[in-house]
């Protein structure tokens, strides 16, 4: 059951960077949410064989991680853990799409390899942008921002409750799992009957906890309406951040910067 504890640690570690005082954490969450979405849209809008033109976009996660004091190793580890699906589907490209596309110093590179590399690059860029959104904003404020952007309160409340109690319930699951393993005499794997009993008990506990939380909410005047003002203040810096991001992404989308740079460098060489 150490997997559950690991997952929990992962869940908390990302959120904890948002408590650091820095330029990014002070920004309005809405600015960062909109910038992230725009970024992802730009990244995925490129043609399937694009690699070079995508590279300048890596500057966004790099800057976010630097300004937000988020260690790159953490993001890299999370990317690695999340990568299997993109790898699994992407790896078919080189197998199926063997037409030569690029000639690299006399070596033919198949189109499939190019598109595979492009998939991995897209994956790394989009996922790290999403991870860094949480790491530099904090889940709590992301939800407040989403709420202000028009996401129904029932979902933002749900997200906050989920995040709050994932920790508590996963702790319970982990303890139940440990108790089972200690008596399982080396049979590590769960058969369906034991599994259903384990999850059933966990579910019963969850339902009882929900009842107690509801009582605790009623005791403090809850009437069915979740009130959280989170009056977010949209300041000039937020506008500046958003416009700057949008301009940079648009520039990267319209000009193949590395190729231009390479052209200049090649021209400068004797």
């Amino acid at each position: 059951m150490s997997r559950i504890d690991d997952t929990l640690r992962e869940l908390r570690s990302l959120d904890s960077f948002a408590a650091l005082p820095n330029t990014l954490t002070r920004l309005d969450p809405r600015a960062k949410i909109l910038a992230t979405f725009f970024y992802i849209a730009v990244v995925v809008s490129f043609d399937r064989y694009t690699i070079l033109a995508l590279l300048p976009l890596a500057v966004y996660p790099v800057i976010l991680a630097a300004l937000g004091d988020v260690p790159p190793s953490l993001i890299a580890r999370k990317l690695l853990i999340a990568s299997p699906f993109a790898l699994m589907i992407g790896i078919f490209n080189p197998l199926l799409d063997r037409a030569p596309l690029v000639d690299l110093f006399g070596m033919d590179i198949a189109a499939g390899w190019v598109s595979f590399a492009s998939i991995l690059l897209r994956f790394a860029l989009t996922v790290s942008a999403a991870l860094l959104l949480v790491a530099t904003t904090g889940f709590h404020r992301v939800c407040a921002g989403l709420n202000q952007l028009g996401v129904p309160r029932i979902l933002t409340t749900q997200l906050l409750f989920l995040f709050r109690y994932a920790e508590v319930l996963a702790g319970e699951a982990s303890r139940m799992g440990t108790a089972r393993e200690l008596r399982a005499c080396g049979r590590r794997r769960l058969n369906l009957g034991v599994y259903a009993g384990l999850l059933g008990h966990l579910l019963l506990r969850a339902l009882e906890r929900a009842q107690r939380i509801h009582l605790a909410m009623l005791a403090r005047g809850f009437d069915g309406e979740m009130r959280g003002p989170h009056q977010l203040a949209w300041r000039r810096t937020d506008m500046f951040f958003l416009v700057l991001c949008a301009a940079c992404f648009a520039l990267a989308r319209s000009i193949d910067l590395p190729r231009a740079l390479g052209h200049i460098l090649l021209g400068a060489l004797p």
Binding site: R3, V168, A170, L199, L202, R209, H214
Partner: peptide
């Protein structure tokens, strides 16, 4: 149903935790 908010929240957490537990397929 005002009890729905905590109920849904905790059950979401339950699903989240449950997805981390695997069972063996016969």
């Amino acid at each position: 149903q005002e009890q729905l908010a905590p109920l849904m929240g905790v059950l979401g957490a339950f699903i989240f935790a449950a997805q981390m537990i695997n069972f063996s397929i016969p």
